[in-house]
């Protein structure tokens, strides 16, 4: 019995440092935070336009607060997991500076210069995407997980595009700034194609989710193209689509092998 006890203790002593080394930069955790920040850029702008047009303003402001805090958390985590590469570190510093300015601008609902906020959001989103592509492709576990990343990319693109659809709609119908459609360049066909590709992925547990998202997308498109102005209904339908998409996103993140 004593021998067994000491064997177990010795096993734990030697396995923990090995486990710790492997888990110091798990690709799953890094990917989750990088992708989250990339998706949050459009979400900030969506919340900004919805709050400005008084659509469920209290809920929207609460979501904006949570989203800003999440972006901050993720930036802190990512900063602790940068590779030893001067260029990457410089790019990250620039992103952080950009973020600090953006963070103050997005909560200023009196801001009349929409173009500035749209351009800053697009820039933030692009920088986050570049950071994600660089940090993940350089991770030692990237090649082992290439297939899952392909499907994660479809989900992330959909989440970003659905927020973009809301942004377009509100700018066009509520805030009367229709030039924005050219800036955001989003269409429903990309979202549909991504859903079709996801439907073919055998490792997704909940198949009904894809069907639900497809139905939800039909309803979103109907509202978007309808002559009647229904911003609350559009927000409600897109919220459902996003929540289902996020559930799927976390399911796929869970499939990444650390």
């Amino acid at each position: 019995m004593k021998k067994l006890f000491f064997s177990i203790v010795l096993l734990m002593m030697f396995s923990s440092p090995v486990m710790a080394q492997e888990d110091e930069n798990p690709i799953g955790e890094l990917a989750k935070r990088l992708y989250e920040n990339e998706m949050l850029a459009n979400r900030f702008l969506k919340n900004f336009v919805l709050a400005k047009s008084q659509v469920f303003k209290a809920k929207i402001m609460k979501d904006l607060d949570k989203s800003l805090a999440l972006f901050d958390d993720n930036i802190a985590y990512i900063s602790m997991h940068l590779p030893d590469d001067n260029k990457v570190r410089d790019d990250f510093m620039k992103l952080q500076e950009q973020w600090n300015i953006y963070r103050l601008a997005i909560i200023d609902l009196d801001l009349k210069n929409y173009k500035k906020i749209v351009n800053s959001t697009l820039l933030l989103g692009t920088e986050c995407q570049k950071m994600r592509e660089t940090l993940l492709s350089e991770h030692p576990k990237y090649d082992d997980n290439k297939k899952v990343f392909k499907y994660i990319d479809y989900i992330v693109e959909n989440i970003k595009d659905i927020d973009g659809i809301v942004i377009n709609y509100v700018f066009k119908n509520q805030l009367h700034f229709s030039e924005i459609e050219k800036a955001l360049k989003i269409d429903f066909s990309t979202v549909k194609k991504n859903l079709a590709k996801l439907a073919k992925y055998k490792k997704i547990q909940e198949k009904r989710s894809i069907k639900d998202m497809g139905n939800s997308l039909v309803m979103i498109e109907n509202v978007y193209n309808n002559q009647n102005d229904r911003p609350k209904l559009l927000y409600s339908n897109t919220k459902y689509f996003s929540r289902k998409s996020y559930l799927l996103f976390y399911e796929l993140i869970g499939q990444l092998q650390n």
């Binding site: 309803m219 009647n228 609350k232 209904l233 409600s236 459902y240 289902k244």
Partner: peptide, 21 residues
């Protein structure tokens, strides 16, 4: 009526989504 129908449709949708999720 147009404002109210938007609200009613959104609430039906929201509530069903919450129950569904």
């Amino acid at each position: 009526a147009s404002k109210e129908i938007d609200y009613a449709l959104a609430k039906i949708n929201d509530n069903l989504s919450e129950i569904d999720l």
